[in-house]
Design a protein around this nucleic acid. Structure first.
Lengths: 199, 199
DNA sequence: GTTAGCATGTAAGGAGTTACATGATTTT
DNA sequence: AAAATCATGTAACTCCTTACATGCTAAC
C-alpha cells in the first residue's frame, strides 16, 4: 500500500522522502498518515527492487537530500499493485489510495474496481441492516445510533460510487458516438438502497 | 483495542471465543473484523493477566468450549482502556469501538470523548478544505472528487456528534430540573461547518 | 456418510508505529 | 543565538493477518 502510494506520487515528479510525506498528508491525510519510520525503509526497499532510483543533482554541495525518481520497472510494479485484487477488499483506506491514482487505469479497470467496491459496500450494508433488525431490541442506544449512522454513511458512499460509475460509462460510450443508455442490472436484494438515477 | 472489545462484550455475559467473534462481527463488523489468529491469543493474554477466567460448566462431557467470564480486575482494566486518551486519536475504528461501549462511561466522560472526537474531525475537515483550495487547480478529477466526498462525509460525522453531544447535555441537565440551555461556544474558524441547532 | 458449521489453536510474517538519534538550514 | 522546520535514518515493538492443523457435531 505504501509502495503504491510512493510510486504513484513519484510518477508525477521526482521527490525526496520529506516531500513525499507532505504530499501524502495533503492528498490522503484524512485516511492515511505515514511515519518516517515506514517511509524511509520503504524507499530503500523500492530502490533495492530497482523500482526507483536516486538522482544526484549536479549541485551536490548543500544539505543531503535523497531525491528519488521512478524507473520503468517501477512503472510496471505500480500498474501491478494498482490493479491487484486481493488487498482492496479488507480495509477502507486501501480503496481511497487506489482511487487517488485512478487516472492511471484504463476505463474498464476503473469501472471494474468501482463495481467491486460497490458490491463490497452493498454487502456490508445488508449485513448491518440485518444486524440492526435482528438485535434492535436487545441493544443499547449508543450502539444502535452507531449502526444507523454507519448505515447512512454507507448509503452515501454507494450513491457516490453510482455517480462515478455512471460518469465512467458515459465517458466510455461517447467515443463510439451517441448510444442508447443501457439500464444497469440491479442486484436487487429486498430493501437495498436504490441507485440514484439522476443526481 | 481487541482487549477492550473482548472485555466489553464479556461484561454482557460469559462467552467462548467463537461466540465472541460472531458478536464482534455483528455489532462492529463494518469497521472491525477480527480473525481467530488474534482473538484466541488475546483471550489467553487476558487470562494470564487475570482479567478473565474460564468457567468449567458442570456438564463437561461434550465438545470442548472455553467459556470465559470477566473478573473484577478485568472490569478495572476495561474501564481504564475505555477512557484512555492516547489511542483514540489515530484511527477511526478506535472511536467506533469505544462508542459501542459508551453506556459504561459516566456522562462527563462521554461528553469529553465526544468533544475530543469532534475537535479531531474539525481539524481534519479544515486541513482537507485547505488542501482542496490550495491544490484545486493542479489536481486530477478523481482525487478532487475523493477529497470532496471525504469532506462531505466528515461534515455528516460532525453533525452526528453534535446531536449526540446535545442529547448528553440535555440528559445531564434534566436531573437538576429544567434549566436554561446554554449556547455552546463555537470554535469558529472561518467556513467551518456550523453545528446543526435543530435536527 | 459426507458436507457444513462449530470450536480451538500455532507459527510465520506483514505493515506499520514509536522512540530515539543526528545534523543541516532557515526564520525570528 | 535560539527556535522552527527541514531531512534522514535505525531498533524495538505492536497489532493483526494468513495459512496451517485438528477434531467434534449437526444436518442433509
Amino acid at each position: 500500500m505504501l509502495e503504491l502510494a510512493i510510486l504513484g506520487l513519484l510518477k508525477e515528479r521526482a521527490m525526496h522522502g520529506y516531500q513525499l510525506k507532505k504530499r501524502l498528508a495533503d492528498t490522503l491525510g484524512g485516511f492515511w498518515q505515514v511515519s518516517y519510520g515506514s517511509l524511509y525503509p520503504a524507499l530503500k526497499r523500492l530502490q533495492r527492487e530497482e523500482a526507483v532510483e536516486m538522482i544526484f543533482p549536479k549541485e551536490q554541495v548543500g544539505r543531503r537530500k535523497n531525491v528519488y525518481r521512478i524507473t520503468e520497472k517501477g512503472d510496471a510494479v505500480f500498474a501491478d499493485l494498482l490493479e491487484r485484487v486481493g488487498h482492496e477488499a479488507t480495509q477502507d483506506g486501501n480503496f481511497s489510495v487506489r482511487f487517488a491514482f485512478f487516472r492511471y487505469l484504463k476505463p474498464e479497470a476503473r469501472i471494474r474496481l468501482l463495481e467491486r467496491r460497490r458490491a463490497l459496500l452493498e454487502g456490508r450494508w445488508a449485513d448491518l441492516k440485518e444486524s440492526v433488525q435482528r438485535l434492535k431490541e436487545g441493544i443499547d442506544g449508543y450502539t444502535l445510533s452507531l449502526m444507523n449512522h454507519e448505515l447512512a454513511a454507507t448509503e452515501t458512499d454507494i450513491r457516490w460510487l453510482d455517480d462515478l460509475i455512471q460518469a465512467e460509462q458515459r465517458q466510455a460510450q461517447e467515443p463510439a458516438g451517441p448510444r442508447r443508455t443501457r439500464a444497469r442490472r440491479l442486484p436487487e436484494a429486498p430493501g437495498l438502497p436504490q441507485r440514484s438515477v439522476s443526481r
